[in-house]
Design a binder for these strands. Structure first.
Lengths: 196, 196
DNA sequence: CCTACCGATCGGTAGG
DNA sequence: CCTACCGATCGGTAGG
């Protein structure tokens, strides 16, 4: 019975996290109340606290889940034996797919992380800076190899990552084009913009 | 005296709006309280209401100020006798400069507009959709003229506008490169990505 | 998982 | 422009 209970609690918490991602994405972290969350979960507000510590915990679990996924991916791609420009393309495709498939949590992690409480805020900030630095190094390697234009690598990273987070509006709209078409369009423009 | 009073009230309101832009950018609209605003303005919270109707008014004045500036600009550029690709470049430079020079209000208009109250919310939404449609038409004209790659125009608009709003982080950072260099880097990548 | 409730803070008003 | 204050709502707890 202890076993069953643990499993139930875990999935219950995952369910709450999923609803929280959706709610925070829709209303913003500060604007979404625990009573709002309780309503979509289907319990009274007080009951949520049997599964989570507090509202902040919800946000940091969402943000770090996304951050961890990014860190694992860039680690993997850095180790691959392909050209820097191909690494950039792979990373961009990964971001685009993440935005399309895990839209709510990626969006929340992108736009609401500033409401993280310490020490999570500092930790997230550091991870984010680190990730961008590693991404920029790949671009610099491509410049050295003369397969990428001579641009400021940090600026390139910034605009590419933000360009992709803009898919938000596509996702919310009538989706005139498919996810795959969307991906190819973005790659054409962004990789095309970097390629020498 | 009535004259002087009017002038004073106007500049006082502008001062409040400027502080509000800065505060909403920093903390987010929902998270920034009228008491926070009063503190940076240097009065008691109740005194703010002699200059403004309510908190919502602050947000919609900020958002529509930015929206009006964009509408005027695209109207002007549409009428110019230059190639579609040059129009795109002009528009992008305009957005980049706006982000650098009127950072706080542009940022707030971009990220906090969802907290607008009706009828401003619907109105803003319509203007925004309209602006993007006009921008996309310029890109489509460039595709027809074969000076722009065959991309989905709405997707291109989305990612370009979001790429630029990403300058946020540059602005907040140590500004390793100048505003002009930043602008040239973005143009190289984005216009380079579109050009056939 | 619920009822009942807390102290804090919110946007905003009355009245001067 | 201030003091004094309002009703509403917030995150969270006690106790069962």
């Amino acid at each position: 019975m202890g076993r069953i209970k643990t499993i139930d609690n875990t999935s219950r918490k995952d369910f709450i996290l999923k609803k929280a991602s959706s709610l925070f994405r829709e209303k913003g972290f500060k604007s979404a109340s625990m009573r709002d969350l309780a309503e979509v979960v289907g319990v009274e507000a007080a009951s949520l606290y049997n599964h989570i510590k507090n509202k902040n915990e919800l946000l940091h679990e969402i943000c770090f889940k996304v951050a961890n996924r990014y860190n694992e991916k860039i680690e993997q791609i850095e180790a691959e034996d392909i050209s820097p420009l191909d690494k950039v393309e792979k990373l961009l495709r990964f971001h685009i797919q993440g935005m399309v498939q895990q839209f709510e949590e990626v969006y929340v992690s992108d736009r609401e992380w500033k409401y993280l409480s310490e020490p999570y805020l500092s930790n997230f900030h550091t991870q984010r800076k680190n990730y961008r630095k590693r991404f920029a190094s790949i671009i610099d390697a491509g410049i050295q190899k003369k397969e990428i234009k001579r641009v400021d690598a940090s600026t390139a990273v910034l605009i590419m990552l933000h360009a992709i987070s803009g898919i938000e509006s596509w996702h919310r709209s009538k989706q005139k084009i498919s996810g795959k078409e969307l991906e190819e369009n973005i790659i054409v423009i962004l990789v095309g913009g970097l390629k020498k």
